[in-house]
Design a protein around this nucleic acid. Structure first.
Length: 638
DNA sequence: CTAGGGTTAG
């Protein structure tokens, strides 16, 4: 279509409905050609003026103008799409159902609700848009928008009264609405009510409702009943399993989807990548990446960010960087994933540098960005920078610090020996401090040998969380550092008398397409005998090189000999021994742990990297340890 | 001429 040249007017005799449809189509096409994908109000105004010059009737142009407006970024200013469309609508005094429906679609909550009663004409579309507006708001505000759930059921009643209750789209919007409310009963009633007007969207909406309600088993049952499933059905199920932490199952469903010849959509890929990232299993992540490449799915912003996150969390920070640098467009998710990834790998300077680049690109950081930056500072001992960024976050970006931000700062200050400043920070918090923060203080008391303070904090912590074994261990270590052996014994006794719970530690390894899980002293593995033989061999070689086990982190009331034994079969060492069996020399042994590395295992692993010239990469509960030539990327800070 | 379901970071 050539712009600027009005289409020739047909003779008057032909001005039947066909002509009106023709003009209408022209208005839409012209607008499409005149406007970019993300127009501004100003551009829409200019386009409007041109259409008027071309002689198109306002009543014909208006609906299409309104339809364009959702694409304008929402800014809350009087120049954003919603305000402009309302002004347009009021000025035109239009009564067309189409135009007012577009308005219901465009306007932000709660304007559609207040507009609705004044609409002279409604059709099923009107109810659909209104319900959609309510659901969106409810979804965005959570339980705080509970007034909306009342409104929604009111709209439900109105729709039924208006005879729109059997309309497929209205039904689906209602199913979605009740799903967002968390009212699975009402959701099912709408879904099951005769006449059963259903399509795959209805099924998917119910599926998503069960997922929201954390009823993934019910979701699975529904999934199995769907007559014809589409990509959304699959991706919703994958997402459901990820949400419930059933990550292996989620990846299994994704795999099944691919095996059935379906082309996974973006949502399926992103959630599957998230599952692989959370598991930390590189082979699984690579599989999903491979599916992206082989199906020709474009690496969009979302997929790119998810890939960056996956590679970083699976220990391949260099790959993550490669994907990141190759992304044409990067959103804040991508930047956050990269900054946090660098921080987790102990590359604090790179993370801070990347943050600076992020700011110079004119992007706005989020609370998560600052978690990454502060973490980076704390891991690299950048005290002045950490303080500066904490201040910047509050003062320039008006982001209220959350527990994680305080956690980073307390860690940063405590590690630098500024324990009293860290305590002042905790005492000045506007939210109730998590005991973890005091645990961090306790840990820095140990590092800096602060006996009195350590005892005060340690006793309080033990009092408030008597079942937490870490507190006893730290307190006993603090006494031990001051050579107060009587007190050490008392703490040990207290601990064993209470039988404190300790979550079982495990270590994972990927090999030949399988995942191998080890527990402490585990003999369940099919190659168990060989694993222990190798471990013996490793221990012998380490002992020859002068390695002496440090049992100070084992605090059970048992003899030293037993302690050495307990340490020798920590899950991590079993995994390393197995790594000797299955990982070819020259490739790193990759291990994923649920807990943090114990001090002695850390030393042990580092020595292994020297004596056997192997690389070991451990992802523990909070960071990565890249060990090579006897050095660790964590700089022994952990 | 309009509409409904799924999506990622600490």
């Amino acid at each position: 279509m050539q712009l600027g040249a009005p289409s020739p007017s047909p003779p008057a005799a032909q001005r039947a409905p066909t002509f009106q449809a023709h003009v209408s189509a022209d208005a839409r096409e012209l607008l499409g050609a005149l406007l970019p994908r993300r127009p501004t109000v100003r551009l829409v105004q200019q386009a409007h003026a041109r259409l008027t010059v071309l002689g198109l009737a306002a009543a014909r142009v208006l609906p299409h103008l309104l339809a364009v407006l959702p694409r304008i970024p929402h800014t809350n200013s009087p120049h954003d799409g919603a305000s402009y469309s309302l002004a347009l609508f009021q000025r035109s005094s239009s009564t067309s159902t189409f135009a007012s429906n577009q308005l219901l679609r465009v306007l932000p909550h709660p304007l559609p609700i207040s507009l609705f009663p004044r609409l002279p004409r409604r059709n099923p579309h009107s109810f659909t848009f209104l319900l959609c507006s309510i659901s969106n708001h409810l979804d965005a505000t959570g339980p705080a928008g509970s007034a909306c759930s009342f409104l929604g059921s009111h709209v439900h009643a109105l729709a039924v009264k208006a005879g729109a209750g059997d309309d497929l789209y209205v039904r689906n919007a209602l199913v979605h609405f009740y799903a967002v409310c968390g009212d699975v009963g009402a959701m099912r009633r709408v879904f099951d009510e005769p006449p059963r007007v259903r399509d795959v969207v209805s099924w998917n909406a119910v599926l998503a409702g069960y997922v929201r309600a954390s009823m993934v088993t019910a979701a699975r049952e529904m999934f199995d009943e769907i007559p014809v499933r589409d990509e959304v059905s699959w991706s919703t199920l994958v997402g459901g399993y990820v949400k419930e932490g059933e990550l292996e199952v989620a990846l299994g469903v994704f795999r099944e989807m691919v095996e059935q010849g379906l082309r996974p959509n973006e949502a399926a890929v992103v959630t599957a990548l998230s599952a692989a990232a959370q598991l930390g299993l590189l082979d699984h992540g690579r599989f999903v990446h491979g599916v992206v490449q082989s199906t020709g799915l474009s690496v969009s912003v979302n997929v790119g960010a998810a890939l960056v996150d996956m590679y970083a969390k699976c220990g391949c920070v260099a790959f993550a960087r490669e994907v990141f640098d190759g992304m044409k467009r990067k959103d804040v998710f991508a930047w956050n994933a990269m900054i946090c990834g660098l921080a987790a790998h102990g590359l604090g300077m790179d993370a801070v540098g990347l943050f600076q680049l992020f700011v110079t690109e004119g992007l706005c950081p989020t609370n998560v960005t600052f978690v990454g930056v502060l973490n980076a500072c704390s891991r690299s001992g950048l005290v002045a920078e950490g303080r500066r960024y904490f201040k910047l976050m509050v003062e320039k970006y008006s982001i209220q610090p959350e527990m994680e931000h305080y956690g980073c700062m307390v860690d940063l200050l405590g590690r630098a020996g500024l324990v009293h400043e860290a305590i002042e920070l905790i005492q000045g918090m506007h939210i109730t401090p998590d005991p973890v923060l005091w645990g961090t203080i306790l840990s820095s008391c140990k590092t800096h040998g602060l006996l009195d303070l350590g005892v005060t904090v340690g006793c309080k912590l033990i009092e408030s969380e008597p079942a937490h074994d870490g507190h006893y261990v730290l307190l006993a270590n603090i006494y031990a550092k001051a050579k107060k052996w009587d007190e050490v014994r008392k703490v040990r006794k207290l601990m064993s008398s209470r039988g404190t719970s300790k979550s079982a530690g495990w270590s994972l390894m990927e090999a030949q397409g399988n995942v191998h899980k080890f527990l402490v002293g585990d003999t369940d593995h099919k190659d168990s005998v060989q694993i222990y033989e190798i471990l013996d061999m490793i221990n012998k070689r380490l002992a020859e090189a002068g390695y002496v086990p440090d049992v100070s982190s084992v605090l059970h009331d048992i003899g030293d000999e037993e302690k050495v034994h307990a340490i020798k079969v920590h899950s991590e060492r079993l995994a390393i021994a197995y790594g000797f069996m299955v990982v070819e020399a020259g490739s790193p042994i990759r291990i994923v742990k649920n807990l943090r590395v114990c001090g002695d295992c850390h030393e042990f692993s580092k020595m292994v990297t020297v004596i056997f010239d192997r690389e070991i990469i451990v992802r523990d509960g909070s960071r990565f340890h890249h060990m090579k030539h006897g050095k660790c990327s964590c700089l022994d800070y952990w």
